[in-house]
Each structure stands twice: as C-alpha cells, then as structure tokens.
C-alpha cells in the first residue's frame, strides 16, 4: 500500500532523512518510532506530498506521490503534528470545508461529517469554534478531518499527543478499529503505544532506519536468552542451587532478599520454556511460589539500545546486554 524507496531529504547541509526504505501492507498499522528530530515528521510530510524529497521515491496506494500527487492525495488522510484547524470555524463548518476540499461528493457530505463526528467523539462540540476547543478535542477534530473522505491510507503524526489517559485509550481503540479497512502509519515517541496499536515498527534515528520488525520480535531479538523472574518464600533456604539444577536453566542470579522472601533471575536456554519445571520444583519442596514472570526487555530498552548504538542485523550475543536488564514498569514514559 505504501512503498518507500531510498528516500532522502536534505535541508541545505542537514540531512533530515537518509536513505529510508520500508513497505506497509494493506490494512497494516505501522508504528514510526524515534526520538524527537529523528526525521519522523519529515518522512510523513514527504509521504503526504507536503514537501518533495531530495532523492528517492514513494508510492502511496499505487500512485507515485511526486508524479501523481493529486491521485495519491485523494487516498491519504493526514493528521499533522499540530491539528490544522481554523480557529474562526465551528467544528461542523470546518469538517464540511475539509470534506469539500478532499472531494467528498456533496450528497454524502452531510452524512460523512455527522458520522466522523460521532466516531471521534466530537459531536457535542459540533457548533463550538475550533479556536475554543481543548487540546484533546483539537486532536480529535484533527483525526476526524483525516478520516472524513474515507482514505485508504492514514498518516498520523503523534495522534495521542496532548490527550488525557482516557482519551488516549479511546484514540488507540479508534485507530485499531480503523486498521484493517485503512492502512495506517502513525508516529510516536511513546513506546507502549506502539506495542499496543501497531503490528510492525520502524525505528528511525538521525534520519536512518535502524530496525524494522514486529514489537514482539524486536524485544525478542535484542535479548539473547529467556529470563524469568522468580520470587520464592523458601523459609530462609537458598533456592539458587535447586533452580540451577533444573534442566534447561543456564544461570541463576539472586536479585533481592527480604526476610524469607528471595527473588532470582533465572536464565534459560533460548527458546525453552522452563516455567513449568520451575514452578513444580519450588512447590514440591513446600516453598511458596509468589511470583513467576518472564523478564522481557521492554520496548523502552530496545529503543534506547537501537537508538544509542547501531545494532547489527544479527542478534547480539553479548551476555552483558541481559545483565543490564531490570524489570521496569511499563508506563507512559516518553523517551528522549
């Protein structure tokens, strides 16, 4: 649906986007991840025909954005970083104008405006001036504007920026609901958002693509072996020898101790799930098994790792990479 070939954009001497290539399949939701200033917005602006690239090609919905901009633009809905609202227009007037601008037939226009307002939950503000809307509403009117002509491709630049947690969840659900019918590219620097909404992730840093994969694979790829966190109430006994004796366990590292409670990081052979054995042996000894969970490298760490150092295409086998892992709560932690 979207094909990007060796896209490069230079502003004078600064190279904002450097030889970027990727594909997005029909109905897919692609996350575009990168620190601020990585070239996300520039790439999106090129894809939407807002600005031409210095070099390379981009095809959207089968139309080259440089050779056939009008045909391509008809099939693109775009939400820029700042929602492009006219403060003097009411929400209804605004959406009506955008519908006309995007070529929605006048017969369907009224119905489209009503349905997108309902879909983006802005119907209660229909007759309010855009300039008087709160940030959350502005963002959602921006989204309404992007989907008004029912485009095949949606390009959303930080669609959840500035929303409160409830609105963020609603917006993500809306985006997930739009996937399937629409091909979506969304940019963000909030990592859990990618894990929750996207099927595939492109990580971009300093204008270059540093990784393309599914969120799950990305986390798995950067982690050599599987690591479990186990918390045991062993009544004071050291559980480490018992755990390391289990088949498939490579290494056991005690991580914390509180009274009779002890936590361990248990590393197993790659691709081998040792949770059943772990649980059985602990319970059989009469100890209390209080916690058992896989310690995945969160996307945040993946992200930091790929954006601070160029990862090779192969899986890194450096065991030190795992030693630096710590179970971190997945929150809305904006990186960079």
């Amino acid at each position: 649906m979207i094909e990007v070939h060796h896209l490069t954009k230079r502003y004078g001497r600064v190279t904002a986007v450097d030889d970027v290539s990727f594909r997005v399949e029909r109905g897919e939701i692609l996350g575009f991840l990168g620190p601020n200033g990585a070239g996300k917005t520039t790439t999106m602006r090129i894809l939407t025909g807002y600005m031409p690239a210095t070099d390379g090609r981009a095809t959207v919905a089968g139309y080259d954005i440089f050779d056939k901009p009008i045909d391509a633009k008809k099939r693109i809905g775009y939400l820029p970083e700042t929602p492009p609202l006219y403060p003097d227009m009411t929400v209804r007037e605004y959406l009506d104008f955008v519908a006309r601008l995007k070529g929605v037939p006048s017969k369907e226009k009224k119905e489209r405006v009503t349905s997108v307002m309902a879909r983006t939950h802005v119907a209660d503000m229909a007759d309010r001036h855009c300039g008087k809307l709160s940030k959350g509403y502005r963002q959602r009117v921006g989204l309404a504007q992007a989907i008004i002509h029912n485009p095949e491709v949606l390009i959303l630049d930080e669609p959840t920026a500035g929303l409160d947690p409830k609105q963020i969840i609603e917006t993500r659900e809306l985006i997930r609901g739009l996937g399937g019918d629409h091909t979506i590219v969304l940019s963000t620097h909030i990592l859990p958002e990618v894990a929750q909404t996207c099927q595939r992730v492109v990580i971009i840093n300093k204008g270059r693509v540093v990784a393309v994969d599914t969120p799950d694979n990305l986390t798995a790829r950067l982690k050599g072996a599987e690591t479990m966190y186990v918390q045991v109430d062993s009544g004071g006994a050291d559980a480490a020898p018992v755990l390391s004796a289990l088949p498939g366990v490579v290494r056991v590292a005690p991580s914390e101790q509180r009274g009779t409670l002890a936590g361990y990081e248990v590393e197993s052979e790659r691709g081998r799930d040792v949770r059943r054995e772990l649980a059985r042996s602990i319970v059989n000894r009469g100890w209390g098994l209080l916690e058992l969970r896989p310690m995945r490298m969160s996307l945040e760490e993946v992200f930091l790792q790929v954006t601070t150092e160029e990862i090779p295409e192969e899986t890194p086998t450096d065991p030190g990479a795992q030693g630096s892992m710590d179970p971190r709560t997945e929150g809305e932690v904006p990186v960079a």
């Binding site: 602006r45 939407t48 025909g49 807002y50 009008i70 045909d71 633009k73 008809k74 693109i76 775009y78 820029p80 970083e81 700042t82 929602p83 492009p84 609202l85 006219y86 403060p87 955008v98 601008l101 995007k102 070529g103 504007q145």
Partner: peptide, 14 residues
C-alpha cells in the same frame, strides 16, 4: 503560522 497550510498542501488540490 497556524499550520493549516499543511492541510491545504496535502489535499487533492493544486
């Protein structure tokens, strides 16, 4: 200034 130019330039108009 307000960024609405992005809407115009990405719409199917010349």
């Amino acid at each position: 200034r307000s960024g609405t130019i992005e809407l115009l330039l990405t719409s199917p108009v010349t």
